[in-house]
Write a protein that binds this DNA or RNA. Structure first.
Lengths: 121, 121
DNA sequence: ATAATATGAAACCATTAGGTGTTATATTTA
DNA sequence: TAAATATAACACCTAATGGTTTCATATTAT
């Protein structure tokens, strides 16, 4: 269970942590190297890494005196799925139409547009 | 400029705010009705609404004594774009392959798998 | 063995986040 | 007009965030 105080949404909320993820997407790195890219202390970076690890977005393996961190992007899928619900609402009218046609009359869409068309005839 | 202390990533980090967004995706609602869905105070809900508004995820219009809030999902596109960078790294081998085929040999993929296949013959 | 390097861990601090309750003001409705 | 409703605006509280500095420990290189 491990309570998991930090979920993926909180983990990616911080810009520094997003930058860390970006760094690790290119290659795995020890803490000291990650820190070298930022102007904050190593301790602060370690805390961010702990939060990312809690959300399973990074994984670490000790190698000698170094601790190598690597990206683990799978949990981002949760965010993607969350987003997918909202995609029907933005983008363009086409996607709204697509949703309407595929899923039927949900969300109070209520065929207003086609009624309007009829009225103008 | 308005400094915009809260960006979209921070706005969606809180579960209550995500629930508010979900509510508003069905219909626009006054504050009191939104509050009725939660067990926290109206004041707390209002603060969440302010944060969502700062991130442009909701918009309000006053109607009589009520203030109607509605969803404005466009800013979520920023999250989607951010995510799209990482999609190449997770999902399944198929999507990696897809990216490989479409975009060419980037990210150090280096055709390891097909070499392995040859070796087993 | 010693010095340098990499990390771990603790104590501390200021600000923000998320919540509360109270009081005031605007708008309906009876 | 008076009562009810919807929101606004404060003041306040506690815990979490994001950062610091300092000291200890493990590993590597000279």
């Amino acid at each position: 269970m491990t309570a998991a105080k930090h979920d993926v949404f909180q983990a990616i909320a911080d810009p520094t942590r997003r930058e860390v993820l970006r760094l690790l997407s290119n290659e795995e790195m020890p803490i000291s190297k990650i820190t070298s890219y930022f102007s904050i202390s190593r301790t602060a970076i370690v805390k961010h890494l702990h939060i990312l690890a809690e959300a399973d977005l990074v994984q670490a393996k000790k190698q000698g005196r170094e601790k190598l961190y690597m990206l683990q992007p799978e949990p981002l899928n949760e965010v993607k799925e969350w987003l997918s619900y909202y995609e029907q609402f933005w983008n363009n009218k086409l996607s709204v139409l697509k949703h309407f046609v595929e899923e039927g009359e949900t969300q109070g869409l209520s065929l207003v547009e086609s009624k309007e068309k009829k009225r103008t005839t």
